[in-house]
């Protein structure tokens, strides 16, 4: 197992290197410059270029940048005058992570329940209702839900705050809006998987032992049905973290997504690069975790081997 993870980390480094290189050269092709302010004179601009090392030829910039990131230095921001990129990310990441994690957990639990109920009550009214909910969740964009929640729960009923980030109750509405997509995806997936698992021979075996439906689903069903779910969990986690940007805007949450949009507007290369690389590390890390999780849930692909 240790060897396996070690190898995987090696691959992760290579992947990371490729992504860093690719984004770096992509940045070079972006039109415009970070210092496009009309108030700046030519000499001022030149001095700024010099200060941030932008006057040097591209290959040299590249080598410098790459050596710096492997030292853990992502450079300094252009728009915030010399603030380290890692500081900016660190400051903003908290809200995004809390929001993403809450939506994922909430979405998975509700989605799981909905999907299992739909599978057990296959082809009944309950099943159809659950699936209609799922389809709505998939097809209606989350900012629509966000707006509706703000209007009804926030403004009309006055139950919860509609904006800002000052405590748990502030996170409830954005979490719900974000998790609608998760609920819908998980519910549909679990329903399909569960239906297949419930048709397997070992479920009949369990039934022949005299177990009741509840025990069968909980003990024999969920674990087997969850195996394929793990696959979509990885990309979903990342899309939650990156996908928070609209929701963050709507609820004025000071998260990373909001910062990302701002940086693109101002051609703040170091921050764009930094956030992109941060996301890719996250993604690669999640994929690794998912693969390890597979082994935990499904003993057949446990890599430690065992007696054959």
């Amino acid at each position: 197992m240790g060897r396996y993870i070690f190898g995987r980390i090696g691959y992760m480094l290579i992947t990371f290197f490729v992504i860093a290189t690719f984004t770096f050269f992509l940045m070079q092709t972006l039109p415009g410059s970070p210092f496009n302010d009309e108030r700046l004179s030519e000499t001022q601009k030149e001095r700024l270029y010099e200060r941030y090392g932008l006057d040097e030829p591209v290959p040299i910039q590249y080598v410098k940048y790459m050596t710096n990131i492997f030292k853990g230095d992502f450079g300094v921001s252009f728009q915030y005058d010399g603030r380290a990129v890692s500081d900016i990310i660190g400051e903003r990441i908290g809200a995004s992570v809390v929001l993403g994690a809450q939506s994922l957990i909430f979405g998975c639990i509700i989605g799981l329940i909905l999907g299992i109920i739909a599978a057990i009550k296959h082809n009944t009214a309950i099943d159809y209702v659950a699936m209609v909910i799922a389809v709505i969740g998939l097809s209606v964009p989350n900012f629509v839900f966000a707006g509706l929640l703000q209007y009804w729960v926030g403004v009309k009923l006055q139950w919860l705050p509609v904006a800002f980030w000052e405590g748990f109750e502030y996170s409830i509405l954005p979490t719900i809006s974000l998790s609608v997509f998760v609920i819908a995806t998980i519910a549909r997936f679990i329903r399909t998987e569960m239906l297949e698992v419930l048709g397997q021979d070992y479920i009949v075996t369990a039934k022949a032992k005299g177990l009741n439906q509840f025990a069968i689903v909980m003990k024999h069903g969920i674990r087997n049905a969850a195996i394929p779910i793990i696959t979509i969990l990885g990309p979903m986690t990342v899309s939650l973290l990156t996908g928070t940007l609209v929701i963050e805007q709507i609820f004025s949450v000071p998260g990373l997504g909001e910062q990302f949009v701002k940086s693109i507007m101002t051609n703040d290369f170091p921050v764009i690069m930094g956030v992109t690389l941060f996301y890719s590390i996250l993604f690669i890390g999640v994929v690794l975790i998912v693969d390890i999780l597979y082994g935990v849930i499904d003993p057949r692909i446990r890599l430690s081997g065992g007696t054959k």
């Binding site: 021979d201 022949a208 032992k209 005299g210 009741n212 024999h220 674990r223 003993p299």
Partner: peptide, 26 residues
């Protein structure tokens, strides 16, 4: 409910394919 008491205790069953009749994750 009554059948559940009988199954596995008074009457039990062996199935055809041992490859699929055991839960792989238990």
């Amino acid at each position: 409910k009554q059948m559940q008491k009988i199954r596995g205790s008074d009457i039990s069953m062996i199935f055809q394919d041992p490859m699929t009749s055991l839960n792989p994750t238990m």
